[in-house]
Amino acid sequence: MTAEFDLPFILGHVNYWLFIVLMMTGLYIVVAKGNLVKKIVGLNIFQTAVFMLYISVGKVSGGTAPIFPTDMNVDPNVVYSNPLPHVLILTAIVVGIATTSLGLALIVRIREQFGTIEEEGIYQIERDMAAEEYRLHSELMSERR
């Protein structure tokens, strides 16, 4: 395997480059954005990158859709794409939708309880709660000693 940067190698693996760019974009959004909904969006982009990776792997050059003729006489000269990754990714998409909806539902509840969906604000509230608990705790314990 040659690791030199020749054009055919780069172009031949274009689906992988796209996959990496999309994946990194998604992860970056999760890391950098404080808005909870935006994080879910980032997560979705990240997952979509994986879907594309799988689907592009299943593609065979010049291959057609993997559908058998109704008479079941398969022409050995016809090249079919690999259907299995598509099937797998259908499952993964379902999982992704479930995750997204659950995440959004949680955000709704968080909005009700915390009054904000910005991470900074939420952590401020949580920090205050923890500090209050800690103060209460240490006071009571020192009183006891």
Binding site: L27, V30, L36, K39, L43, F46, Q47, V50, L53, Y54, V57, P85, A92, V95, T99, L102, G103, L106, I107, R109, I110, Q113, F114, I122, E126
Partner: peptide
């Protein structure tokens, strides 16, 4: 508990997706 679940959801999904990438 809500934010804990949300954090876990983000982390868990990333973990699971990494796992799928590995299997891919």
């Amino acid at each position: 508990a809500l934010t804990a679940a949300y954090d876990y959801l983000i982390m868990g999904t990333i973990g699971a997706t990494f796992f799928v990438i590995g299997i891919g």
